[in-house]
Nucleic acid binder design. Structure first.
Lengths: 106, 106
DNA sequence: CTTTTTGCTACAATTATTGTAGCATTACGC
DNA sequence: GCGTAATGCTACAATAATTGTAGCAAAAAG
């Protein structure tokens, strides 16, 4: 399939369209969840792990690195992960999902 | 870890909070992308596959089944997958990502 | 100095995804 | 009718991602 391998590239970025790259980045495990958990306050890596149902630090770290690379998340000097201004904007778009999900229930 | 196995349950649903289940469902490969590709018009399985960079039918089928189970997507009688009313609502929330992504670029 | 917490990594085991091929069914062109 | 192409969908091995557990070095308490 000739996919990109190790590089920081994102699935769907082949199309060149930024949305695809974004959809791809957000469509990875725990990506949306991380943004969600950081929506109100910064969290340390441990606290974030706890918030994310004890997800393995391996993925969390991987996602965090990607999210940082994308400029949505940053590691504060005093420690702890937080949303950047851009990250907060993105999170604003995910927020409405709360009400929607409640209505969706299943 | 005592995770749910074969059932149609969703990761994150352990918390009982619908948002988590939704974030989990959408945080699977091609899930967001599928919603995105169906945003304007119904697509046949083949057309959808083409739209999704020739993603393997295995995942596409899996995601489609999940998305149908969640009530976001349906298979029309005349063939072809389409968003349900609920699915369109959900898609409305993903739409703003287009402009955001353009600005984000990377 | 000891203890705790930080961000982060190693590693094997398990799942998920990929890529390719193909099935049964339905619809079309001739 | 008969071939042809398209539909939704599945099988399967190969590959990649994720999980779970353990633990590291550095910094911050205590």
């Amino acid at each position: 399939m000739a996919k990109q391998a190790a590089s920081g590239k994102v699935r769907g970025s082949r199309s060149g369209r930024p949305v695809m790259a974004l959809l791809d980045l957000l469509g990875r495990r725990w990506a949306l969840r991380i943004l969600w958990e950081l929506r109100e306050e910064p969290l340390t890596s441990r606290a974030l792990r706890t918030a994310c149902d004890e997800a393995s630090p391996t993925v969390l770290q991987a996602r965090l690195t990607e999210l940082r690379g994308a400029g949505f998340v940053e590691l504060g000097e005093g420690g702890g992960y937080a949303l950047t201004a851009l990250g907060r904007e993105l999170c604003e778009m995910v927020m409405p999902l709360l009400r929607f999900a409640e209505r969706w229930k299943r």
